[in-house]
Structures are given as structure tokens and as C-alpha cells.
Design a protein around this nucleic acid. Structure first.
Lengths: 186, 186
DNA sequence: CTTTGCTTTTGATCTAAATCAAAAAGTAAC
DNA sequence: GTTACTTTTTGATTTAGATCAAAAGCAAAG
């Protein structure tokens, strides 16, 4: 979904501000496997995924762990870099050719100062992030691998088909072998 | 820590706004075991814990699970009620006599409209929440019960001493028996 | 169509932590 | 003190999912 359409779903902006915002975000197309951000790096950019699929990931004991999937209409930013001024363990990778809108957080903040609705939008986006984490925490803590797989199938049926098994397994917090057995229904 | 001192650590406010905010938050003292919010209820209040300890919790299969500990200088609000307009599974309970500041989200939002610094503060508080969840998710997914216990000892040494074992175990995502064995060093 | 290099599946074994059950230790009430 | 109740510890057993190892499936490259 286009950045501006997304924005309008949640807040209303003056036509001027709308145009200004739309200009302020660069638009780029990236191929599969492109890294928007490398893990353990510093990035103050804010990304919005207009079309495609991406994921955030990190390296733990040499293994690649999917931290979250980014679907169309979602934002990604490195909280560690922007708010804690440190490198972030999380990288972001494009999984299918995608259209990405980009702005630096510094620039975005200028618009926050000019526009209360935009600040409201940022709260909405952040609250969504909190909810997503909270839900995932719950699922890791209380659901079996099988249950987590089922609810992911419900929530992201598209991702399950379009993404390599290993990425999904690490996201679900299980090994690839276990995921394979679950899929086979054993 | 006093609400206003906390605020000043992060943003600067005009003396007038400072006084206004300070008046807008009610101040109350609650005894141990008092529930600020019952689980599965609707609450649009925002709480700030000025002194004491509290926890958020929910009921899962009849069992009481600690979702987070609220230490001095932390905020609590029901995201589900305020942003999703539904009942929240999470309740909040005072664990030791505490001084709590309270405001309705509606009232707080009015100040957001008047004050950009306050909006910035709300972003900081939310980002902290995201970071906390993100860290806890990591610990549940990759650390053994023993490791989680150790890092909690480091992070919240005070809580470990002042709170019943069962509350801590459910927070760590383990049974009380396992926590007891870990403590005994077995 | 065969070789090379992934990705996925299958099999056997191991282990951390859960569960079930009961004893022990604390705490408060009389 | 003794009784009743709650919290914590200890013990025996079970289990979900990990780990290790190898086989099977698949896709691109020559």
C-alpha cells in the first residue's frame, strides 16, 4: 500500500503536508536478498515497505535468526541506533523484489515538530510494534511449536509459501527439522 | 522518582506546563495487593509509579502469570483498551505500598496537542517498552532458565528479594519448582 | 542428462524443564 | 505453645523439541 494511502487511513493531513511528506520519503525498488541494513550496524533511516516482503534478522552463535517479517504497509527502523545511539543487532533483508520508501529519522522528526497528526501516526505505529512483540512473546511462552505454526499459517498465509523454511523456523523459535516434521504432520 | 523529575530527565518543559502536568496527574498511595486494574477489564488510565513496586499479570489456564514488573519511574497503561478499544487481559497489582500518579489517556492526549516535548516523552516511553519486550523475547527464546534467572538477578536485584517466588517464576516463564531448584544451585 | 550445491526430510538419541506428588519450612491466628 | 494455611523445596517420571547424522529432493550450470 502506498505510503500516503496508509497515512490517510489513520490520520488526516493537509494537502500541502501530504505532498511534502510524499516528497520527503525517497522511493526505491530493491531486488531479492538486498540488505537494507546489515546486522550489527548503525542506521538512522526509517523504511516503509510499499510493496513486497522483507524480514529483520540477526546472527546468534553464527546462526541466522529471523526476528520479524515485514509485510506491505509496515515500517522498519533501528530503535537501537535511533533512540539508544548504538549499533543494532538487527539487519533487514528484502525477500522478494520490493518497493521501499526511505527517510532519515532526523528529517522525519522535523515533520513531527510541524504536524501533530504525524506524531499521532508515529504513536500508532509504535503501539502496533508493542502489540506485535507482546503477542509474539505470548506465543513463544505458551504455545507449542505446532500451535505457533498454526497461528502463523492463519496470520501470514502468504509468507509461509513465499519464504524459505529456515527463515520461518527461526522466526517460530524452532529448528528447521522440527518445522519440517510439523508440516509433515508427524 | 517524582513524575516531574522523571520528565525533566528527558525533555524540558515551561514552568507553566510543568505545573499544569503535575496538577493533572492525581497522586495516590495504595497498599500491597491493591489492584490498579483487574485483568480482562477496560481501563483508559495511564499510571506512573512514583514509589514502590508493582507488576502486570494475566490469568492463563487458571494460573496467574506475571507479565512484567513495574519499578519506580515506570509507566503503565492498557494498550488494548486505549488503542484497540477492547478489554485487556492484563491487570496491574501493587506489590508493596506505592505512590501512584494517574491520569486518563484522554486528558493526557490534550497535553500532547499542546506540547511537542510531551509527545517526545511519550515516544521515549514507548520505545522503552518496545526495547523491554524485545529483550524479554530474546531471553525467552535463547536463554536457559538458569541464564534468565541470572540476568534477572543482575537487572532487578531488589525485585528478586521483595517479591514471592511464584510471581518471579511465571515472569521467567518457568515453574516454581524449577526456579526453586535453580536458586538451590542444583 | 549429469554434476554440484543447496534445501528439506527422515531417523535415532539426548536433554532441559514440565508435571505429578509429597515433604518441609514459614507465617499467622488462636 | 498448637492448629491451619501458604510458600518453598525435594524427588521421580515424562515429554517436547534439540542435536547429530545421513538420505532424499530440487534447481541451476555446464
Amino acid at each position: 500500500m502506498e505510503l500516503i494511502s496508509f497515512t490517510k487511513q489513520h490520520i488526516s493531513l493537509s494537502p500541502e503536508m501530504e505532498a511534502e511528506i510524499n516528497n520527503a520519503f525517497r522511493r526505491e525498488t530493491y531486488p531479492k536478498n538486498h540488505k537494507l541494513v546489515q546486522p550489527d550496524n548503525f542506521s538512522q533511516k526509517v523504511f516503509y515497505l510499499e510493496k513486497g516482503i522483507a524480514r529483520t534478522f540477526y546472527i546468534k552463535d553464527g546462526k541466522d535468526i529471523t526476528h520479524s517479517f515485514i509485510s506491505e504497509g509496515a515500517f522498519f527502523l533501528s530503535i537501537e541506533s535511533i533512540f539508544y545511539d548504538t549499533a543494532s543487532p538487527y539487519g533487514a533483508e528484502i525477500l522478494e523484489e520490493s518497493v521501499v520508501r526511505t527517510i532519515s529519522y532526523q528529517d522525519l522528526e522535523k515533520y513531527f515538530d510541524k504536524s501533530n497528526p504525524l506524531q499521532k501516526l508515529s504513536r500508532i505505529v509504535m503501539v502496533n510494534a508493542i502489540k506485535t512483540f507482546s503477542d509474539k512473546l505470548y506465543s513463544i511462552q505458551f504455545q507449542s511449536a505446532q500451535e505457533r505454526y498454526n497461528s502463523m499459517l492463519e496470520k501470514f498465509p502468504d509468507i509461509m509459501l513465499r519464504v524459505p523454511l529456515g527463515n520461518i523456523a527461526s522466526y517460530l523459535g524452532i529448528t528447521q527439522e522440527t518445522l519440517s516434521r510439523i508440516r509433515a504432520g508427524k
